[in-house]
Simulated assay, not measured.
Amino acid sequence: MNIPKIELHLHIEGAAPPAFIRGLAQEKGVSLDGVFNEDGSYRFESFNQFLSVYEAACTVLTGPEEFGRLTTAVLEQSIEQGVIYTEAFLSPDFCGGGDVGAWREYMHAMQEASAKLPQIEMRGIITCIRHFGPDQAKTAAKCAAETAGDFITGFGMGGDEMRGKQGDFAYSFDMAREAGLRLTTHAGEWGGAESVWQAVRDLGVERIGHGVQSIDDPRLVDHLAEHEIVLEVCPGSNVALAVYPDWHSHPIEKLRERGVKVTVSTDDPPFFHTNLGAEYDLLGHHFGWDDEIVRDVNITAANAAFCDDATRKNLLKKLEPAS
């Protein structure tokens, strides 16, 4: 499939190749017992274990230089899959502990690394970590507001969706909105349709990370379609974490048929043994997605991207069918 791809939901640390993390650990003499399986892949059996392994892997990412190298490794993977534009979730909690000055150094390292790969455009969405609590989220939001611009274009929230409510973080989202940042948040992956209602009602986001459990509330599905709220769907992640038992049970096609704007992303690809090409191959196999649908979904992603109009126009031009 030669159609250019646009990815809107990618965690920069979660996209780290296992070999990259093992290499850093060896360089620093850090033990990562329990993080890897015997075959070298990340080890986890549940969502909570996934979060623990994710955070353990992040312990070797201790400075801007490492995050610059990480950015290069992640974007090179994306380029191999035909990705021409990606939005990566970046957390100041993992990049300087929330200190604005330190965060700037990490951000510049990632921005400089991305600029060296002209085959792909990258933008950063700063995320607070839900299970770190609302007060810590304000620190992330301050980092976002202080560095909003051409590279940092959005603000969102990841982490354990079962901790608290979306509205608990309204202050942080208001701060980001006032700084001109676009808004998204994880919802409807574990917290049910109600968590999506909270995100829409209490945070005023224009995109939802995952959002797949919206399918359980027909009124919510209609609301998403009517208000053109875009879902950043990560089917392989949902199946790997047993949100749905298999691909056939995944609701992405039902949502699309109901008029909801869906996009396709990989979330934390090496954790889930996937890549963007594999996602589209499986969507074709299970739901009959052809080139026309794939192109349409990527046009949806281009229009929903948190980028400037000139970048969007260029992306849409690249998505035009060859004459």
Rank of each mutant, 00 (worst) to 15 (best):
V212N: 15
P218H: 04
V239A: 05
H250K: 04
Y244I: 04
H273S: 12
E206R: 13
S265R: 04
I229L: 09
K261T: 15
V230E: 00
V205G: 01
G259F: 08
R258E: 09
E292I: 07
G288S: 10
R219Q: 15
A199S: 09
H286L: 03
Q213C: 00
V230M: 06
Q198F: 02
E253Y: 11
A179T: 05
E206Q: 08
S195Q: 08
A187K: 05
T266R: 03
V196Q: 01
R295Q: 11
S195E: 09
Q213V: 00
G284Q: 09
R258I: 00
G284S: 08
A193Q: 02
S214W: 07
E292G: 01
L224T: 10
G191A: 09
E228H: 12
N238W: 09
Q213E: 10
G192P: 02
D246A: 14
T185P: 00
Q213D: 04
A199T: 14
P251C: 08
Y244F: 13
H210Q: 07
F272E: 03
H186G: 01
E257G: 15
H186V: 08
T184V: 15
A187E: 03
H285I: 05
E226M: 14
V233I: 11
V233P: 00
D268K: 07
H227W: 15
G259C: 06
V264T: 02
D222K: 14
H248K: 15
T185A: 14
D291Q: 14
G211T: 06
H248Y: 10
F272A: 12
V294C: 13
H285A: 12
D216C: 00
L224I: 11
T263N: 09
I293K: 14
W247Q: 02
I208T: 06
E232G: 13
S237E: 02
L276I: 14
H273C: 11
V221C: 05
L203V: 12
L224V: 09
N238E: 03
I229V: 14
V294Y: 00
Q213H: 10
K254S: 07
E279S: 08
G209Q: 05
A193P: 01
L231P: 08
N238I: 02
G204A: 13
I293T: 15
G211K: 03
E228P: 01
L255D: 02
S237P: 00
G236R: 04
K261G: 00
